[in-house]
Structures are given as C-alpha cells and as structure tokens.
Amino acid sequence: EVTIKANLIFANGSTQTAEFKGTFEKATSEAYAYADTLKKDNGEYTVDVADKGYTLNAKFAG
C-alpha cells in the first residue's frame, strides 16, 4: 500500500491537502478523480508530479 498526497492549489490562493491510499494505480486514480469533482466550481487544473509520482500538485485555474 502506498499513499499519494494531493496538494490542491486554488485560484484564490487557498490550498487543501488530501491523501489517497491503496496500490499506486488506485491511489493515483482516486486523486485525479477527486480533482475532477472540484473542476465544476474551481475550473480546469494542471498537475505537476513530484516525489516520483507520490505527490501531485494540482493548480486550479479558477
């Protein structure tokens, strides 16, 4: 089991951190699915991958 950390950075400057656990593939998929649920209210996002894929920095356009 691994933990994927998602740093969510919103256009207004606020941030949120979420963690997803499971296999690498499952946890990564859940992190992206969570970011997708936030698109409606926060706009499209881009992701910078860090820490060999164990940290995802998602920046929302607003």
Rank of each mutant, 00 (worst) to 15 (best):
1 E>Y: 13
1 E>N: 11
2 V>P: 03
2 V>D: 03
2 V>Q: 05
3 T>N: 06
3 T>H: 06
3 T>M: 08
4 I>E: 00
4 I>S: 00
5 K>V: 14
5 K>I: 14
5 K>P: 00
6 A>V: 15
6 A>L: 15
7 N>H: 12
8 L>D: 01
8 L>E: 01
8 L>G: 03
9 I>T: 11
9 I>R: 08
9 I>N: 06
9 I>Q: 09
10 F>W: 05
10 F>H: 03
10 F>Q: 04
11 A>K: 09
12 N>A: 04
12 N>C: 11
13 G>F: 04
13 G>W: 02
14 S>W: 12
14 S>Y: 13
14 S>R: 13
14 S>I: 14
14 S>A: 13
16 Q>W: 11
16 Q>M: 14
17 T>E: 09
17 T>W: 09
17 T>P: 04
17 T>R: 09
17 T>I: 12
18 A>G: 05
18 A>V: 15
18 A>M: 15
19 E>R: 08
19 E>Y: 15
20 F>S: 02
20 F>L: 02
20 F>T: 03
21 K>D: 04
21 K>A: 07
21 K>V: 12
21 K>T: 13
21 K>I: 12
22 G>N: 05
23 T>Y: 07
23 T>L: 09
23 T>P: 10
24 F>V: 07
24 F>Q: 05
24 F>H: 06
24 F>W: 11
26 K>V: 12
27 A>N: 01
27 A>V: 03
27 A>Y: 00
28 T>H: 06
28 T>W: 15
28 T>L: 14
29 S>E: 14
29 S>H: 11
29 S>A: 15
29 S>M: 14
30 E>D: 15
30 E>S: 08
31 A>N: 02
33 A>F: 08
33 A>V: 06
33 A>E: 10
34 Y>S: 01
34 Y>F: 12
35 A>H: 00
35 A>P: 01
36 D>A: 06
36 D>F: 00
37 T>P: 00
38 L>I: 05
38 L>G: 03
38 L>V: 05
38 L>A: 09
38 L>M: 13
39 K>D: 01
39 K>E: 06
39 K>F: 08
40 K>L: 12
40 K>V: 12
40 K>R: 12
40 K>C: 13
42 N>V: 05
43 G>W: 03
43 G>K: 01
43 G>I: 02
44 E>P: 14
44 E>G: 07
44 E>K: 08
45 Y>S: 01
46 T>I: 11
46 T>P: 01
46 T>G: 04
47 V>M: 15
47 V>R: 01
47 V>I: 14
47 V>Q: 02
47 V>K: 03
48 D>W: 11
48 D>I: 14
48 D>N: 10
48 D>V: 14
50 A>Y: 11
50 A>V: 14
50 A>F: 11
50 A>C: 13
51 D>F: 00
52 K>P: 05
52 K>V: 06
52 K>D: 15
53 G>W: 01
53 G>Y: 01
55 T>N: 04
55 T>H: 05
55 T>M: 06
56 L>I: 15
56 L>W: 07
56 L>P: 04
56 L>Y: 00
56 L>C: 05
57 N>L: 07
57 N>I: 14
58 A>F: 15
60 F>L: 02
60 F>H: 01
60 F>P: 02
61 A>Y: 12
62 G>D: 08
62 G>V: 07
